[in-house]
Design a protein around this nucleic acid. Sequence first.
DNA 1: ACATCTATGTGG
DNA 2: CACATAGATGTT
Length: 745
Amino acid sequence: MTQSSTSSPLHIARVVVNLSLDRLFDYHIPDSLQDQVHIGSMVVVPFGQSTRNAYVMELGNHSEFGELKDITSVVGDRALITEKLLELGDWMADYYCCTREQCIQVLLPAVIRSQKVKKKKRKLVTLTSVKTVEDDAERIKVRAPKQADILIILKTHGPTFLSDLTRKWNLSASAVKGLEAKSLVIVEDETDERNPFDQFNVLPSEPLALTSEQTIVMEQVRAAVNAEQRQTILLWGVTGSGKTEIYLQAIAMRLAEGEESIVLVPEIALTPQTVERFRSRFGDQVSVMHSQLSDGERFDEWTKINEGRVKIVVGARSALFAPFRNLGLIIVDEEHEGSYKQDKVPRYHARDIAVVRGKKENAAVILGSATPSLESFYNVTQKKYVLSRMMKRVDDQKMPAMEVVDMAGEAAAHGQPQIISSRLISETRKALDNGEQAIFFLNRRGYATHMQCLKCNFIAECKNCSMNMTYHKKDDILTCHICGESQKAPTSCPECRDPEIKFGGLGTQKIEAVVKGIFSDARVLRMDSDTMTRKDSYRDALGAFRAGSVDILIGTQMIAKGLHFPNVTLVGIIFADLSLNMPDFRAGERTFQLLVQVAGRAGRGELPGKVVVQTYTPFHSVIGHALKQDYQGFYDEEIEARKLLNMPPFSRMAIVQFRGESQSLVHDHSQAFHEFIQHYVSDHCTLIPPLPCTILKKRGKFFYQIMMYSENIQQLSRSLKRAITDFKCHRDVAISVDIDPLSML
DNA sequence: ACATCTATGTGG
DNA sequence: CACATAGATGTT
């Protein structure tokens, strides 16, 4: 229904109810609420027997329905979702094959939706009369000494929060009550904004002088912004080429025009270091959004943005939906990062949606990476994005020297497989002797990946998942990395009672033990999700490494990204084959990105860096390109392969997944759906019949999937939505759709 | 999601 | 027949 531009007020609101019905319902707007109901408002409506929250999608003055119920009330004093963001949500629901309500869940943070958190109110105690305070204190001293104390404190410190009086001065609230009764003080609610930066004192920073490469890129950014329809730039800059300074100056440029900016950073890279760079340049105009914020902090940050009190947001994936109204720029740093894809519905990719939001709100978009995703680089060749390149490190630092060690040869030489090669040992020794630091990378935590009985070949497997239990030596337990189930490690085989049990497969704990054995003089720190359990442990660990109280840092994913340590001269990649051998067409791409990113941690200061890559496939072309840091070479080869196999970006994918506790039921329904959907999709769509997922069973549920390929993903998505609505599925089988999946597991 | 309606099944 | 129970339908 189109909105008519009559002068008569619009009495009818079309809303989506906070249930996943994906339908619009009409309600009458009572006169009393007339000026409070806008598009994007959150309202309370009677629905069936109960009452529910709903979001206003459209306004009008005509309805197909006869009897309309009244909107009960409006939540908040202004629309909680901007019109543009609502449009974006609709677009996402269509594209990602999900309901509008599911998209609204990501547009509006849960703390805002639930309305459980309010602006924090604290009771502020103020003197009624400063002049007479001393006389008053003297007068009440005998009968109420505590009350007199309070008066003196208020005299010297001015208005004070009740909580501070009770905490710092150990005074009771009842004493304050007494004063209030005597009308000597007044107690009132004062909003107190939580400030996540309270503990930090940030020194201001000035824009840096740009290198010649950076100057050229800034010109391209300016051109992208000045274009009638603002453009998307792919900023391909090697590690250490100064991408962040580009971001900062681009933001400053928008700020000068009164426009807002969003900076997306992978969650794992959202360290205090990163935040500080933005805070030091833009101070209080920056808001930070990350998963560690408390509900209260998140509420305050969101409110600041919605009320226009900050102009810049730095945050992980969900910060893309910051409710700015005059957005000028979106930056997606490390755009190739898989963590931009949300793994629950709606399974959106923040980089792709950043480009869509940029289009809708005419904001420029900068996608930055040293190792762009195949999709993004392909989009450059298709003229969808503009390419900017920075091939030199600032200050003319050299790229680290990379060398490969053939672990098969190493094993032959020693008569058994080795964990740390002699080459890596000697390089580490050299670095340690020079007082330099080293990083060892292995993307797998735990001590051993499996526990096996040498006699009967029994392997400990999780009872909820089709997965081997990983051995963790520290607690002497076997644990499942999927469901977290753990048990005491047995001392003999649970099947045949044989005491000879073998622990096979490398994890970071094993590396730690081996490294400590070889370098008994070195201070070793392991960083993985097992050691980084406390809220601040990540910051503390990195602080210790920075301060030089750690020589060798061993870790998983979490040390691969964006860390900047000038004293690190050596990076050891323990087992490069790990990611290469994944059963996924993106394994090569991911390995290349990982190797180049990890290598980028070396030689970031005065000292040159060295990288040792250990692998059993030293002549694999992906490893070859990574050694030469040759992105273009890698891209050309990989894109050719994708073309031959008609894989993304040449075709687009959707995965339909079926899950349930009964394997046969799940299997049968996936078969039935495969039959069923034939009638819904066009000939251009390729259907792969249902297959059990790589990990068949997770948390007691079985998984089967149908893969679909098409040139036109939007059309495919729409057909899928219709098919799923029409398909009669058993209650105990759940269907979920992943559009543009990143992983096929 | 939840209430309500409808078609079908079961006992004896 | 009464009653139970699974599945479909509607909520403005």
